[in-house]
Amino acid sequence: MNLQLLKAINENRANRQAVILITNLKSGVQRLVRESELGSDDPLHDTLIAALRGGRSQTFLHEGEELFLNVHTPPTRLIMTGAVHISQALYPMAVACGHDTVIVDPRAAFGTPERFPGVELIVGWPGDLFPNLGIDRYAAIVTLTHDPKIDDPALEYALSTDAFYIGALGSRKTHGKRVERLTDKGFDKDRLSRIAAPVGLDIGAKSPAEIAVSILAQLTAALRQGPQESAKR
């Protein structure tokens, strides 16, 4: 691989564009294909589409030559509302799992540098900010404020995106009321079922850090096993 190719892969990922690097394992010849520029005339079109969709790298025999298709998807992101105790624990864990993580909270008093040193924190309302964040199918959204004024608009916008995971903190009772409010706004049962609530796997988590573990575990299942599998939990 030459340095230009490496830089091109990194640049595309930073711009949230999926790419596939095709390597002929015998000759070492390489070709980079951007998802956005994949033409229907490409001899590997169907195979490349399938690889991109599954996000899975694999070898492939083409005209007697073994090719390695290395799928590079954009870094996953976690966008959470609430500069709260749970996000203090969740943020560093999410970063350790490789997610580009950001906290959104309109309450400047909550998101102080003392409570969140080195954290990417945006002061503002999710309803205003989320549409500008480029939320795609590599993004997860978790609402943690307990405040419908902040969390509801975040969830409403989340449901309009392809986000791979949407979770909302709050008890069953709280979520019941939330579902009523969102139903009144025209969201049907099917769409609302995308929200994981009460958020996180049921592992009896008590402390903020344990709740963060349960959320991250459920998010990981959605990412790696798909929403159907994670919904069974």
Binding site: L3, L6, N10, H72, P75, V95, A96, G98
Partner: peptide, 21 residues
């Protein structure tokens, strides 16, 4: 903490190091 091997590779190369993947 955040492992991104290709970003590390690019950084090492930019630092003038010889690198293999």
């Amino acid at each position: 903490i955040r492992e991104d091997i290709l970003e590390i590779a690019e950084r090492w190369r930019d630092d003038g190091r010889e690198v293999a993947l």
